[in-house]
C-alpha cells in the first residue's frame, strides 16, 4: 500500500510546482499561474464559460484576476460552529437526560399507570403504531349511554378468568417498594402475611425467636439463682440445677 501511495503521490509531487507541493495539493490540480496578460483576459471572459451560473456573473464579483470569486458567506449565519444546545437553551434538558442514567422501562416513566405496560404493544395489539396504521372506525362524537343501551352491559356475577385480570397487576419493583413503606410502622403484623418481599430474613428471625426465648429464660433462671431470694445461692452446689 505504501508503495502504491508513493507511486501515486511521490512522482506527481516532484512534478508539481513548489508552492503546491508544500501545501500537499493533489497532482496537477491547480493550473499553473497565468501570466499577467492572460489573467486580464480571464477577467474579460464571457460569462457562459463559468460553471457556477448566475452567482458568478455578478458585476461586483467580477474582479481581476479572480473571475470565479464569490462573496464570502455572512458570519451571522447559525452553523455547527456554535454549540446549538446552548444556543437553543437546552442545557437543562441535556443535563437532565444525559447527565444521569435514564431508566429503561416504560413503567419508570409512567409509574402510576395500572397494568403491565412494559410488554411490547404488538403482543396484545395495543400498540400506538397500529392505532395510526388502522385508526378505529367510529363516529365524530361521544354520546352518553341511555338506559336501553346500558342493558348491554349487564354482567354475570363472579370473578373474571385470570388472564383478564390485568388491571390489578402492577410492575413488581413498585409493588415491593410500596409494601415496605406501608408495613414498616407495623413490624409485628407482616410476619403473618405470606407475600412479603424478604421472606427469608423474616423467617429466620421467626425461627430464632424460640431460641432467644429459651436463652432469655435460662438467663432469668441464672439471675434468680444468684439473687438473694433464690434458695440455691445459699447452698454449696450452684450448678446442681443446671445439671438437671
Amino acid at each position: 500500500m505504501t508503495e502504491m501511495f508513493s507511486t501515486l503521490f511521490g512522482q506527481n509531487e516532484a512534478q508539481g510546482p513548489p508552492g503546491s507541493s508544500s501545501l500537499g495539493f493533489g497532482p496537477g490540480k491547480p493550473p499553473p499561474p497565468m501570466p499577467q496578460n492572460q489573467v486580464s483576459m480571464a477577467g474579460q471572459m464571457p460569462p457562459q464559460l463559468g460553471d457556477e451560473g448566475p452567482a458568478l456573473r455578478k458585476p461586483g464579483v467580477m474582479n481581476e484576476p479572480f473571475y470565479l470569486l464569490r462573496e464570502l458567506p455572512v458570519g451571522n449565519e447559525l452553523t455547527g460552529n456554535t454549540n446549538l444546545i446552548t444556543h437553543y437553551n437546552l442545557e437543562h434538558a441535556y443535563n437532565k437526560f444525559c447527565g444521569k442514567k435514564v431508566k429503561e422501562k416504560l413503567s419508570n416513566f409512567l409509574p402510576e399507570l395500572p397494568g403491565m405496560i412494559d410488554c411490547p404493544g404488538t403482543q396484545d395489539g395495543s400498540s400506538l403504531r397500529s392505532l395510526i396504521d388502522k385508526p378505529p372506525v367510529c363516529g365524530n362524537s361521544f354520546s352518553p349511554l341511555t338506559g336501553a343501551l346500558l342493558t348491554g352491559f349487564r354482567l354475570h356475577t363472579g370473578p373474571l378468568p385470570e388472564q383478564y385480570r390485568l388491571m390489578h397487576i402492577q410492575p413488581p419493583k413498585k409493588k415491593s417498594k410500596h409494601k415496605h413503606k406501608h408495613h414498616r410502622p407495623q413490624d409485628p403484623l407482616p410476619q403473618e402475611t405470606p407475600s412479603d418481599s424478604d421472606p427469608k430474613k423474616k423467617k429466620k428471625k421467626r425461627d430464632d425467636d424460640p431460641d432467644r426465648k429459651k436463652k432469655k429464660k435460662d438467663k432469668k433462671k441464672k439471675k434468680n439463682r444468684h439473687s438473694p431470694d433464690h434458695p440455691g445461692l445459699a447452698g454449696s452446689q450452684p450448678n446442681s440445677n443446671s445439671l438437671r
Partner: peptide
C-alpha cells in the same frame, strides 16, 4: 417516540438519544 412506547421503553430515552446525536453531529460539524 411511539416505537419506544410500543416496545415498553421509556420515551425519555428517545430524547436522550436525540440530544446525544445532536451534540455529536454538532461537534463533527464544528
Amino acid at each position: 417516540v411511539f416505537e419506544y412506547i410500543d416496545q415498553g421503553r421509556n420515551p425519555q430515552l428517545y430524547t436522550k438519544e436525540c440530544l446525544e446525536r445532536a451534540l455529536a453531529r454538532n461537534e463533527q460539524v464544528k
